[in-house]
Amino acid sequence: MGLFGTDHKACADERLMQMAAKGDAAAFAELYDRYSPRLFGYFKRMLGNDREKARDFVQDLFTRIIDKPHLYDPSRPFKTWVFSVAFNMCKNEYRKEEVRKEARQHLLTGIATDGGETMRKIDGKKFNELLYLELEEMDENHRGTFLLRYRDELSIREISEVFGCSEGTVKSRLFYTLRKLTPKLKMFDPMLNEANNER
């Protein structure tokens, strides 16, 4: 702490969380600014691209931090803790089967309306849509692992902490998911080839 107060932007997540637990609103705001976009994206992808639901989930998660800050274990990195809370929230949501069905229907409708030209005019956005559609077909552990790794860019170790499993399990899940995705996404070869040529 400096003479004129704490520089929250320079603080580690764990320190900010401890300060927020003691009632420091600025620390809470900094945590929100750091994590709300990532969590929003994570929820959106895990919940069938539903923005409203993702927003509600972000609100719910930060309300939990306000109401029960003691639930945070200071011995754990805040990032892995907050993503594990987010993942558990999604898992509870999956128990309602409608979520997955609706998401799949929504994505299928979006792609089908494009007709036969779709595959040739594929762009990054469409690629992502189909990727998430295929991910929806997998169980939440494989989907969550894949998104944390390639969307949120968590390390293998961090993901293993989020899921409470070994690093080997995380790598194995990634391998399995990628191998399963590959034949489904092969239809985008022109885009993939183009991307490779640019590299």
């Binding site: 600014d33 709300s36 609100q59 969307r151």
Partner: peptide, 30 residues
């Protein structure tokens, strides 16, 4: 093929717009 898919996934994720929830949520939570 796996390599191409993986690299494309990485690239597409980087290009994806990162947007958070609206500002009113921030104000409400604070």
């Amino acid at each position: 093929h796996m390599r191409e898919v993986l690299l494309s996934v990485q690239e597409a994720q980087r290009e994806e717009e990162i947007s958070g929830p609206d500002d009113s949520l921030r104000e409400r939570l604070l």
